[in-house]
Amino acid sequence: MLSIFVTAFVVGGLICVIGQLLFDVANLTPAHTLCILVVAGSILDGFGLYEPLIDFAGAGATVPITSFGNALTHGAMAEAEKHGFVGVLTGMFEVTSSGISAAILFGFIASVIFRPKGKV
């Protein structure tokens, strides 16, 4: 029980370290960095490697944005298994709807109640 917290911290932290290397060494913008990580998550799932990482690290693998790519691919592949090629298209958002719907909903709520502050 406790060990999953340790692995979540370490694995999540290490994925962010990769992100920081893309920022500082490869000189990429945040947007480019996040896109690369999402694609990486998707490819890892194609090889069946991301799910074992989730088993190992829990939130350390599901919280970083790589998991978004993984979830999209996973949904697409699960539907493809059932329905063939059509499933590739229809299954994509099967698993991953919560991140996007939460971001849209909370973004909307925030726009109603908050104003940009812009102070140090």
């Binding site: 500082d24 945040p30 944005i65």
Partner: peptide
């Protein structure tokens, strides 16, 4: 402080959406 440490987790995705939403409220919903 955190750089990619706060950009890479899903909270960074949320921050990107939410900050843009707050910012552009002045042009209407």
């Amino acid at each position: 402080f955190g750089g990619a440490g706060s950009a890479v987790p899903i909270t960074g995705f949320g921050n990107a959406v939410i900050s843009a939403a707050i910012e552009h409220r002045s042009e209407g919903y």
